[in-house]
Design a binder for these strands. Sequence first.
DNA 1: TGCTATTCTTTCGATATTGAACATTTTTAA
DNA 2: TTAAAAATGTTCAATATCGAAAGAATAGCA
Lengths: 150, 150
Amino acid sequence: MPTHFQGDPAQVLALDTFIKLTRAASSVQQTLSQGCTYGDLTVSQFGALETLYHLGPMCQNELGEKLLTSPGNLSLVINNLEKQGLVRRERDSIDRRKVTVVLTETGHALIADLFPAHAAAIAAAVGVLDGAEQQLLGQLCKRLGKGQPS
Amino acid sequence: MPTHFQGDPAQVLALDTFIKLTRAASSVQQTLSQGCTYGDLTVSQFGALETLYHLGPMCQNELGEKLLTSPGNLSLVINNLEKQGLVRRERDSIDRRKVTVVLTETGHALIADLFPAHAAAIAAAVGVLDGAEQQLLGQLCKRLGKGQPS
DNA sequence: TGCTATTCTTTCGATATTGAACATTTTTAA
DNA sequence: TTAAAAATGTTCAATATCGAAAGAATAGCA
């Protein structure tokens, strides 16, 4: 609904930009869902597995920060992955408040199997922009973000 | 997690771009939530009210397309708005499959009250980019979208 | 050392979200 | 004109999501 809103031109532009940004993110997300690149996993579950796959085991707090989700939510997502036997919880023996989440063999095999097609699907979706455009988009987006740690 | 993934450079760039896009959208969304610009409404509820406010009454199907959400979801969101007395359902007398959603006076007054601060908050969040950058970002994002009708 | 504040996780209640099945109504086409 | 197909909403089950409260464990400080 490109801003059927009359007012301060700077605000109109900002709203329009915001809507386009939101829609672009949704749209790519939808394309991926429809492309079946998540297997039988939900988007959240896939994200958790992928992070563990690329960065190794980490405690829930850290994982939650990387996935930009609340502790309560992450707890549920990990529960559901645990039920499927894809991850394992290990209480940290040094700091017993922490719970380290570890991929099981099954989980590792699953994400290793799914990831290449997923990456290809993202590349295809984002590929409507050429390399220079993607870099430009990335830079602009980065400046909008809060500078979450990488 | 800027793509701790080794592989085809084009895929790495695309993944990185995708992550930055997703994070930028989340980040702005979070800034708005924390800025209290949604009042006591959820993001979905606010979106529905705002759309009705700017575009006038419309049937649920049309509203669902504008908000990029499923029929089932929209049905619930409208239920919750109805419970709060902010919208009213009216069965279309010509095509009796359709249900037109209309803002009540209360709903209209609420969104009219909330919207200006919301627009200002968006302008502030997106305002880290200057006008030319916003337009550029908007154009790039638009090309990533599926070209949903406006 | 012992109390207090902080950190990490879980739980709870409410709402959101999707996909699928279903009912109703309209449209299409035979 | 009537039967099949399509469009519109609702409902359901499963998962997600947030905020707030609660529990457990550690860290900091008097």
